[in-house]
Design a binder for these strands. Structure first.
Lengths: 231, 231
DNA sequence: CGGCACGTTGAAGGGCTTCAAGCTCTGTGG
DNA sequence: CCACAGAGCTTGAAGCCCTTCAACGTGCCG
């Protein structure tokens, strides 16, 4: 089932290209629906194609030998997944799991190579995207090395606000995704119990409002202050 | 002071290219010597060129606002530095400090773009290099999130063995670089005191032998076992 | 040979994890 | 429609790993 070529223009990699240039990519593309909890690909799987998130939320997750999992990245609509590793023909060091029902485009790696050779801007866009991921990873290494848990949870919340935050009344921001304590723990390098205690404390201070699998941030400035207080 | 074109072939990015193809790059290149402790570039500096380590050891380091520093990557001869960020014209999120006297080639970013457009294999090589860095970063995030300090120090030692380990007699391996407890701490996300205690414990167990700023690993298998024991 | 950076060691304490038990909400099937 | 199972959440208690602070040793280089 081919996808609409317009879908391919709603992302940072191919946006500047003409419809004609993208037609071949769209023709061989395949649409795929994922339900919450379903995996797009598993850890250590060979990457023969790559993916573009059209709608929903997908997380890249790495499992340890002891069964714990760590969220490496949270992707929303418009973000490509595993394109770097697909282009060089190596498996990505993690799996991809939908944390909301999602729509995905499955795309051909070989055709992207054709685009790369024809349009230098595509190379530039890919490098920019990868640079962003690398910068994000480096920042998380610094945070995990030097900052305390509360600060890291606050950072995870701020990142989620950027991704899926939608303003509600009085300057509050609601996170438009199902988000368990365990999810937040896997983004912050801590345990679900500590996340629970921290969020409860924030709720008592009036910074956030917790519902089951939902989080509303009442005072972003306070969350930012927690981050800047360091630790 | 231009550099010898042969120097440019001793790395993973440009190795397969002909001398002719690299001549322009070599002509505009500049050689630079760094003494131990000297910075090649500082955090948040604009990147107009990029660098190739010819000889020595250079580490990419990120400083926190509170003055702590974290080693993001340790580069040896043949490795490019900051090329990704130079190509897209953004500052790299860290600085580069020589931890041994080093020889560096300063290279033109614009000419690399010409190589990229002329030779697809250069794009592939750059993507492979970046993928390696990203995988390394992801692994460190997992380690910092889930593993205990001893395990992470062991991993840092194993990584250094790959980089600068040279076999001595009886299967022992010496790390050919000056390496303080502080250096190891910044690679493992811990403190110099903890590193000191850990190394002393390993020395008592006969796993390593410590000298001032030097480390010899007597039984790599034991270090590997510590890593695999997890934590 | 004196200064300084590197290294060791101890003691104290705290932030966080771990284990455990019980609670709450949701959706599902009888 | 309601009960119940199960996933998610809360809370407490115990304790440990690691950091922090402090003081002192040690080796190197000028």
């Amino acid at each position: 089932m081919p996808i609409d070529v317009a879908m391919l223009q709603n992302n940072a990699l191919f946006k500047p290209l003409s419809v004609e240039a993208l037609q071949k990519l769209a023709d061989t593309a395949e649409a795929r629906s994922l339900e919450r909890g379903e995996f797009l690909f598993h850890q250590n799987a060979e990457q023969q194609s790559f993916w573009l998130v059209l709608k929903g939320v997908v997380r890249l997750v790495q499992m340890t030998t002891s069964g714990k999992s760590i969220t490496l990245h949270t992707a929303i609509g418009g973000e490509p997944l595993a394109i770097l590793f697909a282009l060089i023909g190596e498996p990505f060091s993690g799996g991809a799991e939908a944390i909301e029902d999602s729509e995905i485009a499955v795309l051909s790696t070989a055709l992207v190579w054709e685009l790369i050779e024809a349009y230098p801007v595509v190379t530039l866009n890919i490098l920019k995207m990868v640079a962003g991921r690398l910068r994000e990873a480096h920042n998380r290494i610094r945070e995990l090395s030097t900052e305390d848990v509360e600060c890291r949870i606050a950072r995870a919340v701020l990142r989620l606000i950027d991704k899926v935050g939608t303003p509600t009344k009085h300057g509050a921001v609601q996170l438009e995704m199902r988000l368990t304590r365990q999810d937040l723990a896997e983004m912050s390098g801590t345990t679900l119990e500590t996340v629970s205690r921290t969020l409860k404390a924030w709720e008592r201070m009036g910074i956030v409002q917790c519902h089951r699998e939902k989080l509303t941030v009442l005072h972003i400035a306070e969350v930012t202050r927690i981050v800047e207080a360091g630790g």
